[in-house]
């Protein structure tokens, strides 16, 4: 096996991001869409960690950024779930296509 470089990690991060993005476009279930948005954040986080490890030297800026991203993701999820709850009360459905009619 070859030695693991920067690009291996970046590829995994990219893959997770693209997967999340594709899911958020394709999926019809709103919970699944939320999960996919979290996937996107995770992919970004992996990129941050990779760059912090390979290019950051002794500073931990990338790692600190991951912390903030995680917090932002949690906040965003809470708000999104509240909106989902609200919409579900009105529409009685978890299909995202029905949420278009306001």
């Amino acid at each position: 096996m070859t030695e693991i470089t920067l690009y291996h990690y970046l590829f995994v991060g990219l893959f997770v991001f693209v997967l999340g993005f594709a899911g958020s476009i394709v999926c019809k279930n709103i919970i699944k869409v939320l999960i996919c948005i979290e996937f996107m954040l995770t992919g970004v986080n992996i990129n941050f960690a990779t760059f912090a490890k390979y290019c950051g030297g002794s500073s931990a800026d990338g790692f600190v950024m991951i912390l903030f991203y995680t917090a932002i993701g949690a906040i965003e999820l809470a708000v999104a779930l509240y909106i989902f709850y609200f919409m579900h009360c009105k529409k009685q459905s978890d299909n995202i296509e029905k949420y278009g009619e306001l």
């Binding site: 995202i96 296509e97 278009g100």
Partner: peptide, 13 residues
């Protein structure tokens, strides 16, 4: 305009 958020996301992307 498809009144679907996902389409708009796709346009943005």
């Amino acid at each position: 305009q498809t009144k679907n958020v996902q389409w708009y996301n796709l346009y943005g992307f």
